[in-house]
Design a protein around this nucleic acid. Structure first.
Length: 404
DNA sequence: TCTGGGGTCCTAGGACCC
DNA sequence: TCTGGGGTCCTAGGACCC
C-alpha cells in the first residue's frame, strides 16, 4: 500500500507588493527609496516634458503611516507601520506616493489567477500573500515541491512583471517562516530536518502568532529564539501562557502545525473606520462627528449590499486621544443592510460610551453576517446542524430595506 | 511631529435555558 | 428548597495579522 503523500505547503509572498506595483507605472523610481502611505494627497505631478515630480517625505504633514516601502527605503529605516512624519527624519529625500488600493487589487487578482492555473488549492491571506497546497501536484513529491515553486514564480512574473518569494514546507507555519528567509525573489525548501538548524536560531517573533506582547513576555523569561521556546518544558509554558496558547507555543516551536489550506471562508464581519485629521470632541464637534458617523454607516451599508450580506450585530469602535480603544455592540431582532437601521443601532451603542475625552477614531462594524440567500430561504442553510434547536423558531428574517 | 484600515480569533462573565 | 452541570447567546476587551 502506498504511503500517504507528505504534505507540501507553499507560502507565496509578493516582494514589497504595493511599492513594486507603483514601480511598474513609475519605472523612473526604480532603485530609489520610495515610501507608500500617508493618505491621498501628494499625487505625482506630470510635467509637460514627460517627466514627473514626486512628493518628498520631508514635505509631509499628517497622521499617516507607512504601508509599504521599497527595499532601498527600508535600508534607511523607513519601515511599514511607522508614522510618515517620524520616518521622514530618517529618509527626508525618499519619494512619498499615495496608496492606490484599486491598482494593488488588480495585480492581486492577476497573480492569484496565474497561481490557480497551476494549483487549485489556494488560500487567500490578504492582498499579497497566499498558501498553496502542492501535495497532490504531479511530480511535486519527487523534489519536495521545488520545481512547482519555480514554476509558480515564473507564472507570477509573467502575469504581473513582479517578483515573489516562496517557501515550501511540511505545513503553513514553516512555509510562512520560510518565505522570509530568502527575500526578495526567494525560493526556500524546508523539511523536517531543517527545524533545528534553520528555524530554532530565529527570533521568537518570526513565528506567525507571536506578536509584540507575547514576545515581550517570552523575553522576560529569557526566551528569545524559537529554539529557546522548544527547549522549554511544555507544562511550564502552559503554566505561564495558558492552556491553549502555551500548548500552541510548544507545538509551533517544534515546527508542528496541522492546519489545512482553506480555499474559501465566509466573512465574519465587515467594517469601516476613520481617523480624523484632528481629534474631535463629542460636544464641541458634534456636527462634524455626526456627519462622519452617518457617512461611515452609509459606506458600511453599501459594502454589505455590494458583497451580498446582512448583519444582525452592529458595533462601534472609538479610539480616544490617549489611544484607548472602546467598543460597544448591539444585536438586532433581524438582519439588516439598511443605512438608517445601522445608524440607529450604532447611535444606541454610542449612548453607552463616556465621551469626555476627545476622539481620534470612529468606526462602525457589522457582525453576525448572513448571506442574502440564507435570508431568503433560511431552511437552505440547515444541514448538519438541523437537529440543533433554533433559539427563536418563530423569528422571521426580514428582507433588507433599501434606501429610496 | 508617534502610531491607518480592515480583518480573525480567543477569553471571560453574566443572562438565560434545560 | 437546595444543589449543580451543560449549553448558547450577548457583550467587551485584547492580541495578532496583512
Amino acid at each position: 500500500m502506498p504511503e500517504a503523500p507528505r504534505r507540501l505547503i507553499a507560502h507565496l509572498d509578493m516582494d514589497a507588493f504595493y511599492a513594486s506595483v507603483e514601480l511598474l507605472r513609475y519605472p523612473d523610481l526604480r532603485g530609489r527609496a520610495v515610501v507608500i502611505g500617508g493618505g491621498r494627497r501628494h499625487q505625482p505631478v506630470q510635467r509637460t516634458d514627460g517627466s514627473r515630480e514626486y512628493a518628498r517625505m520631508r514635505d509631509y504633514t499628517g497622521r499617516g503611516v507607512i504601508t509599504t516601502s521599497t527595499y532601498e527605503a527600508r535600508a534607511l529605516g523607513a519601515h511599514s507601520g511607522m508614522g510618515v512624519m517620524k520616518a521622514a527624519q530618517l529618509a527626508p529625500d525618499a519619494v512619498l506616493l499615495p496608496i492606490d488600493f484599486d491598482e494593488y487589487r488588480k495585480y492581486s487578482k492577476l497573480f492569484k489567477a496565474a497561481v490557480r492555473e497551476v494549483a487549485k488549492l489556494v488560500e487567500d491571506r490578504g492582498v499579497d500573500e497566499i498558501y498553496i497546497d502542492l501535495s497532490e501536484l504531479p511530480g511535486a513529491q519527487a523534489d519536495a515541491g521545488r520545481a512547482a515553486a519555480t514554476q509558480l514564480k515564473d507564472v507570477v512574473r509573467a502575469a504581473t512583471g513582479l517578483s515573489c518569494s516562496i517557501a515550501v514546507a511540511p505545513n503553513k507555519l514553516l512555509a510562512k517562516i520560510g518565505s522570509e528567509l530568502d527575500k526578495p525573489n526567494g525560493l526556500t525548501v524546508l523539511g523536517p530536518g531543517d527545524i533545528e538548524t534553520r528555524i530554532w536560531p530565529l527570533a521568537a517573533k518570526k513565528v506567525n502568532g507571536i506578536g509584540p506582547k507575547a514576545n515581550e513576555k517570552l523575553a522576560s523569561f529569557g526566551l528569545h529564539t524559537i529554539g529557546d521556546i522548544a527547549a522549554a518544558d511544555p507544562a511550564w509554558l502552559i503554566e505561564h501562557f495558558g492552556k491553549s496558547y502555551g500548548a500552541w507555543l510548544h507545538a509551533a516551536s517544534h515546527g508542528l502545525d496541522e492546519r489545512a489550506v482553506v480555499t474559501f471562508s465566509e466573512p465574519k464581519s465587515i467594517s469601516r473606520e476613520t481617523t480624523f485629521e484632528r481629534d474631535l470632541h463629542a460636544v464641541r464637534d458634534r456636527a462634524a462627528l455626526g456627519a462622519i458617523f452617518t457617512e461611515l454607516c452609509g459606506e458600511l451599508a453599501a459594502d454589505l449590499t455590494h458583497k451580498g450580506y446582512a448583519s444582525r450585530t452592529i458595533g462601534i469602535k472609538l479610539r480616544f486621544d490617549d489611544f484607548k480603544i472602546v467598543t460597544r455592540d448591539l444585536s438586532l431582532p433581524a438582519h439588516t443592510m439598511d443605512a438608517q437601521t445601522i445608524r440607529r443601532a450604532a447611535g444606541e451603542c454610542l449612548k453607552r460610551v463616556d465621551l469626555t475625552r476627545r476622539l481620534r477614531l470612529l468606526g462602525v462594524r457589522a457582525g453576525a453576517l448572513a448571506t442574502l440567500a440564507e435570508l431568503v430561504a433560511p431552511q437552505a442553510e440547515v444541514g448538519v446542524e438541523a437537529t440543533h434547536a433554533v433559539r427563536e423558531p418563530e423569528a422571521k428574517y426580514t428582507l433588507p430595506l433599501f434606501d429610496d
